[in-house]
């Protein structure tokens, strides 16, 4: 989490390290012109540049759609992770794990939402609750998608060594996904503040925004961890 402003695209010509024996590219179209056009997609926004997502979160209807798609992404990401990581438990254990992990994620987010909002009040950085829902859920969705992407690693680790490598990879995957979600949260909050304010934030404001993002991560981690402890999705029924 650096204090530098959000990164802009670096001005640079694309040059392919072609074979020195290939003909010169003078007649070929420039590499830039071959780049795929930027197509706005909500699912892409969940892990893409935070600016467009912040724009969506400011609009009531677009935000409801962000929340809806985020819920879907969380269900898919966590369920995929749970199923692949618990394949040694059999079909029933996997299904139970998928259900419990997804439910635990949602319950944890619901439990953390209020305290996160309250932290905003205490550090003089209130974000309307409806926008917090969008920020938090989209952050969790990007985490869940990453968790889903890490699922094959956990699966392999459990195959190799269910006693040590498996649980460690499980904890590692949660750690990586959680931290990336925290960074994501901070960047979306920053973009949101910049979009609402229309000018750069002052140092004090940036500081409070960082506290806010960290506390959001802490609360979500706390409720999520408590939920994992309570529901034990990975131990099998």
């Amino acid at each position: 989490m650096s204090s530098t402003p959000l990164p802009t695209a670096a001005p640079r010509l694309l040059i392919e390290p072609a074979s020195p024996f290939a003909e010169a590219e003078l007649e070929l179209p420039r590499l830039e012109s071959l780049l795929p056009p930027e197509r706005p997609s909500l699912l892409g926004d969940l892990y893409g540049a935070p600016g467009t997502l912040a724009g969506r979160l400011l609009d009531r209807e677009a935000r409801a759609e962000v929340v809806r798609i985020s819920i879907l992404a969380i269900v898919i990401g966590t369920a995929l992770f749970a199923v692949l990581a618990t394949s040694h438990l059999g079909a029933w254990g996997s299904a139970r794990a998928a259900l419990l992990l997804a439910a635990n994620t949602f319950l944890g987010l619901m439990g953390a939402l209020g305290p996160i909002y309250a932290t905003g009040l205490l550090v003089a950085a209130r974000l309307p609750l409806s926008r917090w829902v969008g920020v938090l859920l989209s952050g969790a969705a990007s985490s869940a998608l990453l968790l889903g992407a890490l699922a094959p690693i956990a699966h392999l680790a459990f195959r190799i060594d269910p006693l040590w490598a498996g649980p460690l990879s499980l904890a590692g995957a949660f750690l990586v996904a959680g931290l990336s979600g925290g960074v994501r949260l901070y960047r979306v909050l920053h973009a949101l503040a910049a979009a609402v304010r229309g000018e750069a934030l002052r140092d004090g404001e940036l500081f409070r925004l960082k506290i806010q993002a960290r506390m959001a991560l802490v609360f979500t981690a706390l409720t999520g961890a408590l939920g994992l402890w309570a529901f034990d999705p990975f131990l099998g029924g």
Binding site: R60, R63, A64, V67, I71, F106, L109, M110, L113, P128, L129, S130, W132, V133, L137, V196
Partner: peptide, 15 residues
């Protein structure tokens, strides 16, 4: 199922 996520947006006035 997910009313805590949708209700705030419907109930609070938009800034």
């Amino acid at each position: 199922v997910f009313w805590p996520f949708f209700l705030p947006g419907l109930l609070t006035p938009e800034p």
